[in-house]
Design a protein around this nucleic acid. Structure first.
Lengths: 375, 375
DNA sequence: AACGTTCATGTTAAGGTTCACATGAACGTT
DNA sequence: AACGTTCATGTGAACCTTAACATGAACGTT
């Protein structure tokens, strides 16, 4: 009844008096069909609202033109930007996206892995830190299952040379060094850090980059001033609260990412401190909002959109799915420091909570950053 | 070769010495299988990394447990929040999301409609304004095609009683009236509006709500002060620029949405004006960032997450897909005014561009708004 | 010994599309 | 008249899962 009402190739064939094979040939633009027949078939197709059945096609042996994307949090603007990069490339090759949000939750991620595999996706792009989080090797098994089918798998962030995956990695060491130098040149010495969530690969890497940078410049970070945190606004708020409760506040704060930086700035201003007058705050990632936030945020910028593009491009690269390509490749992109308004010169002994002018009139930004990737 | 390496029911059956039917029964939790066999089959399944082939299942007659979602812009934080609401409900019923981003582009939307239909999705949730934009009736045809298959279609924003769709609609009239009253009570009389993009249903509705509200309160808007705009940060920036170029600036600005409000505030502050001291700015939607932005944004809040939940719940409602339910139903939710820091008392003749204190220490917010919907 | 129940098997078919291959008609060229 | 080319048809099978139905073995109960 309900199924009856959907039209199939057979219906189209009957409607215009040709064979099913002919319809198939027209649908797939195969040669050997006269223009006249081709037009007749096309007319019947649109007449009947015919839509090739993707299930039947995929079953027959084609790949499902669909790529699974697992991200940890869709409300963190980092990921929409990433997805946009992925999608813009995917659309050009006729691929759809199967988007999954695991909320940093392993159980959900596993579920989505199965789901994507069950749907015979042509590729899988997975969120940073996912493999690292996997304790029981389940994710690794899933990855091998994908590889066995020649389905390419791309990860962000972590290199896993022993797995048949391609990694898209950001090298933030130089940019982090620039950031450290920037703060030191502004005169900051008591520098706090709101750490990323524990357990994530990016997290360890970010903390490592920062501590190495300050150590290299001869001003190692005071480990007392590294507070536990997370990747959201709330983490920034509570981190800032911790610092404000100290007898001597840091004069500059490195937030785990831009969201945390925003949370920290909000909390500081609510506490009567001005950024950057009283405290400088530096973020990571350069999400689209970092630029409009007041004050705009100085940040170690990732080429987020390009990361997405690179991931999807890797999926389309025939070499990627080939399991003989076993040892995982890595594609490197570089982070860059973008100096904006949230960092400024150190004023040792921050003034008492008197509120005076902020001097943030002209937009100042020291790098032309890449935010114009419309297709 | 590559296909050979994927395991099927037959492989599982062979591996544990039962018939294919038995494996099928185990997979689908059908009765009539002894516990002992059940366990043996399950063991073989995980041994072989077996994954039921969703294509074959769907082809056999089941629905694909997947819902297509078409949104106009994933980088507008409104939509990730909406998607989160959709996804949280979808996951509970074992549905995946097929997320598509049409960038307000009809051609892309149509493409995605076909894609979703070709994949036999169990439902379609489509972006606001989509039907209204369709000029050639193509979208309408697609909708009927979905209905013919009993696939439920849900729209945001616009009611189309003649189409077999369910609409999720926000009634913002009361809240907009509250907003107008709020601005008038603060003493504002010269009020500007940065309009939403033309052609969108929500856009017309929003402009209508605003003009009706001010008219009802006896202070009709000056149509000279309604400038063309859009739904992004840039629209806010350029709108503010237009107002700043006027001999007499408005003392309050209604932005098309929160993004535009942020852009406007950024442009105003760069131009040396303080918000809300010199100009009040009011947004729409209450995206998650409206709360952390500095100053936090007074806005006509939509229950975004709940809209997503309602949409997916409607998809799961068996009545929705039933074409006998032809005349489209509507589900109404209400908007609410949230007063934050970006609006303040009018100071006729905004001061010259001297910058003095801002008084934004304590967070003030007059409604407890709904931002805690974690599952 | 007869009976009913439980568990598993085997057979056959269907779902929509694609592919390989053999067949054949229509046409123009030699 | 023979030949090659182009376009279309027909047959049969494959992809994997599910369903309906008949069959049958093992078991315990009467």
């Amino acid at each position: 009844m309900s199924r009856r009402s959907i039209s199939t190739m057979a219906d189209v064939a009957r409607a215009c008096g040709v064979s099913i094979q002919t319809v198939s040939a027209v649908v797939n633009d195969r040669p050997g069909i006269s223009d006249e027949t081709r037009l007749r078939v096309r007319a019947a197709m649109s007449e009947l609202d015919y839509q090739p059945n993707q299930q039947a096609r995929t079953l027959r042996g084609y790949k499902n033109p669909m790529v699974g994307v697992i991200i940890p949090s869709i409300t963190n603007p980092y990921f929409p930007e990433l997805v946009r990069g992925i999608e813009d490339v995917a659309r050009r090759s006729g691929h759809g996206l199967f988007l999954c949000n695991d909320d940093y939750d392993d159980a959900k991620a596993r579920e989505y892995f199965s789901f994507i595999r069950a749907n015979n996706a042509s590729g899988l792009i997975a969120s940073p830190g996912l493999v690292a989080r996997s304790v029981d090797g389940e994710i690794e098994r899933q990855i091998h299952a994908f590889a066995r089918r020649n389905v390419p798998v791309v990860f962000f962030g972590e290199q896993r040379p022993e797995l048949p995956v391609t990694s898209i990695v950001v090298d933030a060491r130089e940019a982090t060094l620039d950031a450290a130098r920037h703060l030191l040149e502004l005169g900051h010495r008591r520098i706090g850090m709101i750490a990323p969530p524990v357990g994530l690969h990016v997290a360890r890497e970010r903390v490592r980059d920062v501590t190495e940078a300050f150590a290299a410049l001869g001003h190692p970070l005071d480990s007392e001033l590294i507070v536990a945190g997370g990747f959201d606004i709330e983490a920034g708020r509570s981190g800032a609260a911790v610092f404000m409760a100290l007898p001597q506040m840091p004069t500059a704060i490195l937030a785990s990412n831009d969201l945390a930086a925003m949370g920290a700035i909000a909390a500081l201003q609510e506490g009567g401190l001005l950024v950057p007058r009283d405290v400088s705050v530096l973020g990571f990632d350069d999400i689209p909002f970092a630029k409009v936030f007041q004050p705009s945020i100085t940040t170690v910028a990732q080429p987020i959109y390009e990361l997405g593009e690179a991931a999807m491009t890797a999926i389309l690269d025939p070499a990627v799915g080939d399991p003989t390509d076993m040892p995982g490749r890595s594609i490197w992109l570089k982070a860059e420091l973008v100096v904006r308004q949230s960092t400024g010169p150190c004023r040792e002994r921050p003034a008492t909570k008197r509120k005076t002018a902020r001097s943030q009139n002209a937009p100042r930004e020291e790098r032309h950053d890449h935010e114009d990737h419309e297709t």
